[in-house]
Design a binder for these strands. Structure first.
Lengths: 216, 216
DNA sequence: TATAGAATCTATAGGTTTATAGAAAAAAGC
DNA sequence: GCTTTTTTCTATAAACCTATAGATTCTATA
């Protein structure tokens, strides 16, 4: 029971560290595979002490997911609201998505992989944020169609979701794979989404950055 | 300790059912979230009896993953070996990938999401199968480039992995989302991968099958 | 129908887990 | 320096979990 007043800075800081520790452990072992003892250990305190920061293990998971999503959503919203050209926006959106993985990495991973272990009730807020993200992205595509920059016959909803799927995949790879460079991946994702891979005309020249991945 | 001889059919059949039950439970609750009691319950037997079929819970996870991958790999290999045109092959590959999800759904989900909870040693066989899949898919793309059907400047490795990411994403959605039709998703995935979404010339006319997804 | 082997059951050892309560230590305020 | 509040610790209850062992029931076949 912290005061939330003057010392709120102090508490907030410690609390944040606890969330980060939980994120790291959940990302590594999964929600059920991780024990509260693991989290406490990473934090350098005793298992019981953890309950000073979290009401329950489940609450910890919820917090981890929420912190991950907040960044993520605020990024895309600021990108979508700018009056840039479609290609610029898309590039920015993808870059931001992948960057979130790079910085907030564990939390994002936890959100994507463990969120469904939360009871429905606890997922509401999360779903709302997720929808906002999706809508913004979808909006970017719709705008592109209206302005004639994108094909008229694409399904914006489907395309937006596909991009999310693609970015999530590469986000995870970036997290696991040090040699992989965020910028390269971004460029290549943009290229595929915009041009596809059918021969027609050269899109973006390959900078010969072969991604030497030996993943999965 | 079964005989493996005459009764091997009988045992094999029951064993298969046990693997399927494990797949369903793992898919739903995750490896650590699921208990052997849950699996036994789904199978209609007692918790202890499960150990007649599995040496350990971990062994059960391994088997689930293996059964999922075997289908998956044999499919792509037969597709890749056929002398079809690139577009046909790609369509077939995507269709097969998504179909595997539709039929072997739980096992595939478990493979993708829970496999990393297996100790490295146990993952070797799995990794080998995964590599085979990736190589076949990559081969299809490389072939397309050589034959001039695909852009010369794409990174086949990256593209193949991206396709896997995309298909995995939609595979999961198909599993969770009854109104979604496999064929629609297949067509749209092929379309994105080949043509991208930049305006140029109409690719495949949209059959107006708006995917009314409200996923995530 | 008697018997061997397959399939399942019951019971349990030994361990881990979450969450709580009250004591103790650390930090802050005056 | 003394008091109050925050933070951490210790100990523990109650539940659950995996894996094993030995007894029991079922099934097929001679």
């Amino acid at each position: 029971m912290p005061t939330q007043d003057k010392n709120s800075t102090r508490y907030a800081h410690r609390h944040q560290r606890a969330v980060a520790a939980a994120a790291a452990v959940f990302a590594d072992k999964g929600f059920h595979g991780a024990s509260t003892r693991d989290i406490a250990e990473k934090l350098g305190i005793q298992q019981g002490s953890l309950y000073y920061y979290f009401k329950s293990k489940e609450a910890a998971l919820e917090e981890v997911c929420l912190t991950a999503l907040r960044d993520y959503v605020s990024h895309i919203e600021s990108i979508a609201s700018q009056p840039d050209k479609l290609e610029v926006k898309l590039q920015a959106a993808i870059a931001a998505h992948l960057a979130t993985y790079k910085h907030n990495n564990e939390a994002m991973k936890v959100h994507n992989e463990q969120r469904l272990y939360l009871p429905k009730e606890r997922r509401k807020h999360l779903n709302a944020l997720g929808s906002r993200y999706r809508q913004q992205l979808e909006g970017i595509f719709c705008e592109g169609v209206s302005s004639g920059q994108l094909r008229e016959d694409i399904d914006c909803h489907f395309t937006a979701l596909s991009l999310i799927g693609l970015c999530n995949y590469w986000g995870i790879q970036l997290l696991r794979n040090t040699p992989l460079k965020t910028e390269d991946v971004t460029v290549k994702c943009v290229d595929i989404m915009l041009h596809g891979c059918l021969a027609r005309r050269t899109g973006i020249p390959d900078t010969d950055t072969q991604t030497d991945t030996q993943v999965n």
